[in-house]
Simulated scan of single mutants.
Amino acid sequence: MGMIVSLLVLSGLIFFHELGHYLAARYMGVYVEVFSIGFGKKLFSFRKFDTEWSISAIPLGGYVRMKGQDDSDPTKKSYDEDSYNTKTPLQKIFILLAGPGANFILAFILYFFIALGSPNVLSPVIGQVLKDSPAFIAGLETNDTISSIDGVKITEWKEMADMIASSEGTLNLEIIRDGFIEYKLLTPKLRESKNMFGETIYKKMIGIGSAGVTHPLELSVSETFSYATEQTIFASTMIFTGVKKLLFGEVPAKELGGVISIVKLTSDATDSGWMSVLFFAALISVNLGVLNLLPIPALDGGHIMFNVYELIFRREASEAIIIKLTIAGWVILFGLMGLGLFNDVNRLMG
């Protein structure tokens, strides 16, 4: 079941990405020859809206083939009125941005529905208290609930952690213990920690761990829009930062995952319920949007790069350079896919 859900989620995200390109191309008057989910041998196809719609055997991507634009052969061009090649650089950039844009919009919609479903968030209930930590010295105990810090009401563990990390000096904590309110003064200390990328960092902490208690997040309509916006921006920023760190060697290449990781994580999310599947689908959707904006010639970002060149210098990049860079782009892509697959297999083998 998990495998089927994984393939459906991945295919759905690819469909929306390509649909963005398709709709933008049609809006710009470009004839779309093929809309395909998957690569390789065609399993099923039909013709509608003057376009061939197909599902192919390898469900690891998809493509929209426009008249005059073919990544497999950059020399195949057409200068008919309904061709991609006759459009202005800005029109082509609009078509290219529409794919990643569709992924970001889809992620926002998914986060919106997640918010409507009242997702569970960690409550500020203390579990472990480290010995000799600021919390230990101040007398905080397991099962204490932190209700406010310096008079600011706290409802989530993340709010509390962010306030502590950005604090200056001594904090006044209001806690609830056995139904009674108590006040504790303490000063956070810099401690070694790990961030989401596995890097060693130093941040202000008080030496407590979560008890794992959760509560549903009840949001108004305006708060639901804010939640979806914040989550989409956070996921986008996180993935952009992760890609940058990977490219600059700040994160080891062994952290790169491939399609096996995506399928496994989606399968695991399926076991945890529909809310987890939506969370993961939104994250992967943002991932697809970000990765396709990378300036690699075989990706949308690479084509955008060529069109920006044409926009600035008022001429197309030479065909020879485009061909060489496109080949290099495919080499990079297949190399990254191979590395991701290699890492996935290593993880599975322990």
Rank of each mutant, 00 (worst) to 15 (best):
M3F: 15
V5L: 12
V5Q: 05
S6F: 08
L7K: 08
G12Y: 04
I14Y: 08
I14G: 11
F15Q: 03
L19I: 11
L23R: 07
F39H: 12
K41A: 11
F44S: 05
F49T: 01
S56L: 08
I58P: 04
G62K: 07
M66L: 14
K67R: 15
D71E: 14
S72M: 10
K76L: 15
S78D: 13
P89W: 00
L90D: 00
Q91F: 03
K92Y: 01
I95M: 11
L97D: 00
A102Y: 02
L106H: 06
F108N: 03
L110C: 06
A115T: 02
A115R: 03
S118Q: 14
S123L: 13
Q128V: 14
Q128M: 10
V129S: 05
L130R: 04
D132E: 12
D132V: 04
D132K: 08
A135K: 05
G139A: 13
D144T: 06
T145C: 04
V152A: 12
K153H: 13
K153W: 05
I154P: 05
W157D: 05
K158S: 11
M160H: 07
S166N: 14
E168Q: 13
G169V: 09
T170Y: 01
N172F: 09
N172A: 10
I175D: 03
I175Q: 04
I176T: 12
F180Q: 15
I181L: 12
E182Y: 14
P188E: 05
M196N: 10
E199H: 02
Y202E: 15
I206P: 03
G207Y: 08
I208S: 09
A211R: 08
G212L: 10
T214H: 11
L217H: 01
L219N: 10
L219Q: 06
L219F: 13
S220N: 13
T224L: 12
T224H: 10
F225N: 02
F225W: 06
Y227Q: 06
Y227C: 11
A228K: 06
T229Y: 14
I239G: 10
F248Q: 09
F248I: 15
F248C: 02
G249V: 03
E255R: 09
L256T: 11
L256P: 07
V259F: 15
V259G: 13
S261N: 08
K264V: 13
S267Y: 05
S272L: 14
M275L: 15
S276N: 13
S276E: 09
A282G: 11
L283W: 07
L283D: 03
V290H: 04
V290L: 01
L291Y: 06
L291Q: 00
L293P: 01
I296A: 08
F306W: 03
F306N: 01
Y309M: 01
R315W: 03
R315M: 02
R315I: 00
A317C: 04
S318F: 10
E319T: 07
K324M: 12
T326E: 14
I327F: 10
W330V: 14
G340P: 09
D344T: 12
V345F: 14
V345H: 09
V345R: 10
R347H: 05
L348Q: 09
M349V: 14
